[in-house]
Amino acid sequence: MASPAFRHDAAVLLAIIGRSERSLTPVRSVVGTWAVINVNVPSRKMIESAAAALQGAGLVVIDEEWRLRPTADGARLRRTPRRVSARELPSAIEKVLPPLIPDPSVVLPHEIYAAALDHHRHPKPLLPRWVTAPFRCAKKAEPRAAEPERAPVISKGPSTSTEFLAELAANPEFQRRRAAHEAEQSKRRAAFAAAEAPILKDLRAAGFAAESVWDFVNTSDPYPDALPILLAHLKRGGYPNRVMESLGRAVAVKPMVAHWDDLVALYQNPRSSGEETGVAVALAACATKAQFDELLSLAADDSRDSTRIFFLRTLKRIDRARGTAFVESRVEDPVLGPEATHLTKQAAAARRRRERRDG
């Protein structure tokens, strides 16, 4: 069963993507609307996990461009809550969500999320009011025709979540598709568990009662004795994309600087996109000032993809002057530009705050 926070993220996402099966919602719209409804900007992982859960439950379909569209069941569930505000809608949807288990095959590309985040932080300016004034004045001057009296709209659908769930329970076509979907998800989960089995066997032999490699990614407790096991499996490779990413993220801790050369070799010759992402996170997490030059070289390598964005904050952290100079030089870079621009503006805002405070 999903945690309350996890279910709430899925409910927020379903509230955002619209009520029609024909509506396609890009990640750019998701980020902006999520920030309004939930009063925070969602991380890539939050959107990815919520989308994976909704797709796993058969409520959402994700196309190749990562636009989200509700299925027939998703659209009906989305329309079930009545007479609620935009801020109350996610909580109302959360009450009628079925059990959620993420689809491990769903991965939100970093470049799509980075572009969406940049659009949210730097939206295109609206036209000045003096440009639109003539049109607004003309519109006000036009006489309005009297609107015909409208007949009250009588809803033919379920009026409460209880009625909606009862209707689904009595719908044989829905139950057939749900059973087929759950069978497919069970098959995927079994395949994922089988792929992780050798790793978990070695971890349990060392005294770690983990149910998944992701358990190490999502904990703040140190696990130094598990790091050699995780690194050995990361170097061995051959696991599915999501497992390789989880191994890389699981070793994203400062003590791994002792294995810096191994991580660099893996990053330069990745066997999957998941491995490249996970190892990039590990390099950024463990680098110290002694690794600055090599990390800078990796970040400046234009032959690599968007995983280099993980290095920018670290470069500034371990050598402020040189790291800041590099980040500012990449503001126009097609890959690093969005993150570099954000970090540069963030630093400028902090500098202005200090000047006001000290001045």
Rank of each mutant, 00 (worst) to 15 (best):
P125S: 05
A145R: 12
W130Q: 03
A146I: 05
T132R: 07
R136M: 10
H120E: 06
V153F: 12
L126H: 12
C137L: 15
V131F: 13
P125Y: 07
A138C: 02
A145H: 04
A138D: 02
A133I: 03
A138Y: 01
H122Q: 10
A141M: 11
E147G: 00
H119F: 13
L117H: 06
R150N: 00
F135H: 07
A116D: 01
P152R: 10
K124T: 14
V153H: 11
P134D: 04
K140E: 12
I154T: 12
P152D: 09
H119N: 11
R136Q: 13
A146E: 13
H119C: 05
A133M: 12
E142M: 14
A133V: 03
A151D: 07
A146W: 04
P123Y: 09
R144L: 09
L127R: 14
A116E: 00
W130L: 06
R121S: 04
L117V: 02
E147F: 01
D118V: 03
D118F: 13
I154K: 07
A145C: 02
E142W: 09
P143I: 02
L117N: 03
T132L: 14
R129H: 11
F135I: 14
H119P: 03
H122Y: 15
L117F: 10
A133W: 08
L126F: 12
V153A: 10
R150K: 10
K140V: 08
A141G: 08
D118P: 05
P152M: 10
R121T: 00
P152G: 10
P143V: 02
R129K: 10
T132H: 06
T132V: 15
R150D: 00
E142D: 07
P148Q: 08
E142G: 01
I154D: 04
I154P: 00
E142P: 00
A138I: 00
P152L: 14
L127C: 03
L127S: 13
K140H: 09
A145T: 05
A151C: 02
D118R: 06
A133P: 01
P148K: 11
L117K: 03
P128Y: 04
A151F: 07
A116L: 02
H122I: 04
P123N: 09
P148G: 03
K139L: 12
V131P: 03
P148M: 04
A141E: 06
P125W: 05
R150G: 02
A151Q: 09
A145E: 07
A145D: 05
A138G: 07
P128L: 06
E142F: 09
A146L: 13
H122N: 15
P128W: 03
A151S: 14
P123F: 11
A146S: 10
H122S: 13
C137D: 12
V131Q: 09
A116C: 04
L117P: 02
W130F: 08
L117R: 13
R129V: 13
K139T: 06
K124F: 10
A133C: 00
H122E: 11
V131E: 08
V153K: 14
P128E: 03
K124Q: 12
A116G: 00
E147R: 14
A133T: 02
L126W: 06
K124W: 06
